[in-house]
Amino acid sequence: MKEQIISILEEIRADVDFEREGQKLIDDGILDSFDIISIVSEFNDAFQVEISVEDLLPENFNTPEAMETLIKKLQQE
């Protein structure tokens, strides 16, 4: 799943190295609100989940791993 997440992220923001250690995509201001909406829309289609506005917290989008955890949680619900 992680590879697919990174491939989606890279498609939206080709200029960012998403696998760099220690970076926080939201807290460090790397992703903006437009990117977030694009990412959510792609994730919803790719993983058959419905990410809601309540899930749009920095901690859920700071790293590809956090995004993976969120998607898995939503898939289980």
Binding site: G29, D32, S33, I36, I37, V40, I51, S52, V53, L56
Partner: peptide, 22 residues
């Protein structure tokens, strides 16, 4: 707009832009 009047921008993002976009 991410650097100017940040708290108004953040309010609009969290309570208008995100709910409307989703």
């Amino acid at each position: 707009w991410r650097r100017w009047h940040i708290t108004l921008g953040a309010w609009m993002k969290d309570y208008v832009f995100y709910p409307l976009s989703l």
